[in-house]
Design a protein around this nucleic acid. Structure first.
Lengths: 339, 339
DNA sequence: CCTCCCAACTGTATCGTTACAGTAAAATCG
DNA sequence: CGATTTTACTGTAACGATACAGTTGGGAGG
C-alpha cells in the first residue's frame, strides 16, 4: 500500500535504472539483455536494481523500436460452436501465455464474410507477432497469405498445401473410424455422418475415417448432404427429424459437434424414436455435457483447452525460434466412459 | 494486388504524407486531428493523400507519446459458466469495437485466486485504456482500486459501493420474482433457488426477488445452502439428486445458470422424478439449449451478446467522454416461449 | 509608416527502447 | 616500451506520434 507519492508515480524506465546505478541507458539495456559486452558484476547490479524497483520494459517503446508487439492474435469465428469451444480455447491459450509477456488479442470475424479480412488487417497493421487460425481449409488462402507475408502463425486444423507449418489438430479420422467401429459393435447397419462444412479440412478427415470404417465393417453409409454441424440447431433438429421419419432411415448417427448432437437427439426423439435403441448416436464434445443430456449418447472428448495450450506454445515457438522445424500436435482421447 | 514493391513496403507514416504534400509532419498531424490552426484547404489535401495511401496511425507511436493504448481489457473468469457465456460476451464486445480502433485483450484469471491480480496488472503496466469486469461483489475491492487509480472501467453486474459507475446488468431480481410467480401459477408450493456464490452482487438480487415473490404468493422457500451454480456440474447433479430423494423435497427449482439447470435436471431424474410433473424447473440461459435439453424446463433468456455490446459502448464512453454521467443498462427479456 | 496581431504554418523535444558507432582504459604482444 | 587488441562501457540517432514554442507573411490599426 505504501507507494512513492513524491514523484507522479510514473513507472520506472531504463533511465531510472541508469540514474540509480550510474550507468548509461544503453549499458542498462544491454545488461538486462545479458549482452556479452557487459561485465557480470554490472549485470548483477542492474538486475538487482531492476527487480527492486519493479522495472518492466515499456511495450510501446519496445514496439516502436523493434516492431515486436508481444501480441498474439486469435482469429475467431464468431459463429463457432456455441458450447464452450471458444472460451476453452481462450482459456488454454491464456494459460500458456501467462508466464510470458504476450497478450492475447481477439480478432473475430464471421465465416460468412471474407476470412481474409482479419488476417490482412493483422498483417497490414502489424498488430501482432503471430496469429492463431482455426477452421482451416485444404487450400487455405489465409495461410498462403501469411506465409508470403512472413507472418508467424499456427493453425487449429491441418491443410493440404504441401508446405510445412505448425498446427494442432484433433484426430478426426480416427474419431470417425472408431465411432463406426463402436456402432458396428452395437449392431448398426446404416450410419449417417453429421459433418462440418465440406470446405474445411477436417470434414475430409472425418469422411475418410468414416468411409474406411464403413468399408472395413461392411456397413452402409447414409448420405446426409444438405446439413452441416454449422447450420443452426433448429435446422439440424428439423432435418434429422425428417430423415428419421423416412422409411429408409439410418440406424445410427455420428455428430462432429456436441451442440449438433443435442439438436440431432431432439430430432430423433421428435420422430418418435429412442436413442440407444432405435437409433444410436455418437458425438464428439468439448464440454462435458452430452452424457447429462441423454445418457445413451456415445461420447468422445475433444480437449480444446489442451489444444489452446498447444497452440500458444506452438505460436511462441514459431515466433521466437524461427527454425524450419514446426511444432505439430495431433490429439486423440478416445471414447469417454460413462461415469 | 498491385503493391509498391520498390520500397520495402513499410507502412506510410505522417512523414510519408508530409513528404507527399510538402507540409511538415506537425501540420499533417494536426490536419488529421482537425485542429483549428490548420486551413480547411490543407486539411482537405492531407486527408485526401492519407486516404489514398491508406495511412493508419501507428499504435506504438501514439501509445508511447500519449499513453493511450487503444486497448480494452476484458477481465475474464476462466471458470465462468461453460456454455457460451464467454464467447457471446466476447463477440458482443468485438462487434461494438469493430468500427473503432480499439483492440480487445483478454486477461483471464480464476476466481479461486485473487481477483485483484489481473486488475492491478492492467493498472500498473498501463496495458489498457479501460477495463471490463464481471462477477461483481457488493463491496468490490477491484472497483475501489480502479476508481482510486483513475482507470476507466465498466462492470457486468452492479455494486453497492455508493459510488456511481457505469454498469450493465441483467435484472436478476425480476427474473427470480417472475420465476416464482410462474411456478406459483403451476401450483408449486415449496421452491428452491440454485444461486451463485453469495459474495456476488447478483446473488443478492436473486435472493431479494425470490424472497419477495415467495412472500407475495404465500409459498415456502426450500433453502439450498451448500450448493452454488459455480460448483462443478457433477456436484450440482449429486446434491440435487440427494435433495430430491429426501422426504421433504422442493416441488420446484430455479436455476440462475443454464449449465446448472442441465445438471439439476439430471439430478432430478436420477431421483426418479419427472421434470414438469413432480418437479418444476425454471432456468436462465444465455445459449438457446435448455428447451432442446428438456422441453419441460421453463426458460428465461439472458442476452449476453447484447450485454457485450452495451459494455463496449459504455467503456468507450467512459474512456472518451469523461463526464460524470455514466452509462448504465438493466436488461430483461422475460420468459422464452416454447417454439 | 511602424507596430501589433493573427492565421497558418515549421522546428524541436520527448515518450522508452535498441542499433550502431564511438571511446577510454586495461590487457596483451612482439 | 610502444602498438594493438580487448573489455566495458558511453553517446547519438531512430522508430511514429504529439505538445509546445517558435516563425513567417499579410492585414488591421493608430
Amino acid at each position: 500500500m505504501t507507494r512513492n507519492t513524491t514523484t507522479s508515480a510514473r513507472p520506472p524506465t531504463l533511465k531510472t535504472i541508469a540514474f540509480m546505478t550510474g550507468y548509461s541507458v544503453t549499458a542498462v539495456s544491454r545488461a538486462l539483455k545479458d549482452a556479452p559486452d557487459i561485465s557480470e558484476q554490472t549485470k548483477e547490479r542492474v538486475r538487482l536494481v531492476a527487480n527492486q524497483i519493479g522495472y518492466r520494459p515499456s511495450r510501446a517503446g519496445l514496439r516502436l523500436r523493434t516492431g515486436k508487439t508481444q501480441v498474439i492474435s486469435l482469429i475467431l469465428d464468431v459463429d463457432e460452436e456455441i458450447m464452450g469451444l471458444t472460451s476453452q480455447m481462450v482459456n488454454g491459450i491464456s494459460q500458456s501465455l501467462r508466464e510470458t509477456n504476450y497478450h492475447l488479442v481477439v480478432t473475430p470475424y464471421s465465416h460468412r464474410e471474407d476470412g481474409m479480412v482479419p488476417v490482412r488487417y493483422v498483417v497490414e497493421t502489424g498488430s501482432a507477432d503471430g496469429v492463431i487460425l482455426s477452421r482451416t481449409e485444404p487450400q487455405d488462402p489465409r495461410i498462403k497469405y501469411l506465409l508470403s507475408n512472413n507472418m508467424p502463425f499456427i493453425t487449429h486444423g491441418r491443410t493440404e498445401l504441401g508446405v510445412d507449418h505448425p498446427w494442432v489438430d484433433y484426430d478426426n479420422e480416427r474419431f470417425a473410424f472408431d465411432s463406426v467401429k463402436r456402432l458396428a459393435g452395437l449392431g448398426a447397419k446404416q450410419i449417417g455422418l453429421l459433418a462440418p462444412a465440406s470446405n474445411l479440412t477436417y470434414a475430409g478427415h472425418l469422411k475418410t475415417g468414416f468411409a474406411r470404417a464403413i468399408a472395413e465393417f461392411n456397413l452402409d453409409m447414409f448420405p446426409i448432404d444438405r446439413l452441416t454441424i454449422d447450420d443452426s440447431l433448429d435446422q439440424v433438429e428439423a432435418v434429422v427429424a425428417e430423415i428419421m421419419s423416412g422409411s429408409n432411415r439410418p440406424d445410427a448417427l455420428i455428430s462432429a459437434a456436441g451442440s449438433a448432437a443435442m439438436a440431432a437427439a431432439a430430432g430423433i426423439e421428435r420422430a418418435g424414436l429412442k436413442i440407444g435403441e432405435d437409433v444410436h448416436l455418437v458425438s464428439k464434445q468439448s464440454t462435458n455435457i452430452l452424457h447429462r443430456y441423454r445418457r445413451e449418447i456415445i461420447v468422445f472428448n475433444e480437449n480444446v483447452y489442451d489444444a489452446g495450450q498447444q497452440l500458444a506454445t506452438g505460436i511462441l515457438y514459431a515466433i521466437n525460434d524461427r527454425s524450419s522445424e514446426h511444432l505439430t500436435h495431433l490429439a486423440y482421447d478416445g471414447e469417454l466412459p460413462l461415469d
